[in-house]
Each structure stands twice: as C-alpha cells, then as structure tokens.
C-alpha cells in the first residue's frame, strides 16, 4: 500500500496542545470542526493549506504532551493521512494507529514543505520525489499493522471481540 502527498514540515517537540489546543477539545466531539483548528497556534492558516492525503513531517518527539486522542483524529479530519517524524511520543503513536492515522519513524532531515512524498507501508520505504532521495522507516510491530489494516482499533475490536494473542 503506497501513500502519496505533499509535505508540511514542522520542527521538534510538537506537542498535542499545538496539534489541537485544549480549549477546543472540551467543546465538541465534532472532528471536522476540530480539524479546522489543527496546528493553528503554530500556523494559523494550516488547515486551509492541507489537501486530502498530505504528509505531516516533523522532527523529534512528535505528539508529546497530553493523551488527547483528538490530536490524531483532528489531523486525520484536516486531511493529513500520515505523519513522518524522527521520533514520536508513545501515547500519540498508539493513538494514531488506533484511529487509523499512519505514523512512521524515519530521518526527516532535508524534507521541505511542498515536497512530493510517497510512503510504502509494507516496506517502510519513504521517497521524496521533489528532491529525489529515499529514506527507510522503522517497521511497525505486527499488532499495530493488524490494527491499521482493520482501519483502527474500533474496527479491530468489532471484528475480533478481543485482542488476538500475539
């Protein structure tokens, strides 16, 4: 399965308050509404720049901070389909997979906003078509791939009723 889209690049330590501010998460469970406010403290026009399928690219420790699952869900609602980062905060990483947002760890140095990117989920190969380079992402644990394949943890539990033995 290959994903393709344009990169939107941010720096290190992008926390969940930046992804979606706490002041919105209490007001609504409407993810499309939350999607409009994604990353707005860092870039007020961000949501209007995203096209469906785009890549969010970041440095170290992406998604640190609170456990709010609204963060990956709001990113998905804004049109982002995958986040590439040097490293992720663990709760965000799990939440993303559970919601069906693809997250992959790789060296993101040299990727610029606007670059055309592809990502192959099965091989972990990340390509930057604009600058013609390739990076190798960390493979995901099997249990995560299975959850992603089902379209998220809700669908997984709906199908199997419980966790399948590892």
């Amino acid at each position: 399965m290959e994903l393709k889209g344009k990169a939107h690049v941010f720096g290190d330590d992008i926390n969940t308050d930046y992804i979606i501010s706490g002041k919105y998460k209490f007001k609504t469970l409407d993810m499309d509404e939350l999607g409009k406010h994604v990353m707005e403290d860092l870039d007020p026009d961000f949501s209007s720049k995203v096209e469906p399928g785009d890549f969010l690219v970041a440095g170290m420790n992406f998604g640190c901070g609170s456990s709010r699952e609204q963060a990956p869900r709001a990113l998905l609602a804004s049109g982002i389909q995958i986040v590439l980062a040097r490293s992720f905060a663990r709760i965000f990483f799990r939440n993303a997979i559970n919601c069906g947002l693809v997250v992959m760890e790789c060296d993101t140095e040299g990727i610029e906003t606007g670059d055309e990117m592809t990502a192959d989920l099965t091989t972990g190969e990340i390509k930057n078509l604009t600058h013609a380079f390739t990076r190798q992402a960390q493979p995901l644990p099997d249990v995560m791939i299975r959850i992603l394949q089902e379209g998220g943890l809700v669908e997984y539990i709906k199908k199997y009723g419980t966790f399948q033995e590892i």
């Binding site: 456990s67 709010r68 699952e69 709760i91 799990r94 939440n95 559970n98 919601c99 998220g152 943890l153 809700v154 539990i157 009723g161 419980t162 966790f163």
Partner: peptide, 12 residues
C-alpha cells in the same frame, strides 16, 4: 492511553 484504548479495555 488514548480514549479508544480505554474503550477497548472496557470491552475486553
């Protein structure tokens, strides 16, 4: 954990 994981714990 996230909200959906809390739900998974409630179910399983």
């Amino acid at each position: 954990v996230g909200s959906t994981e809390l739900a998974a714990v409630m179910v399983t």
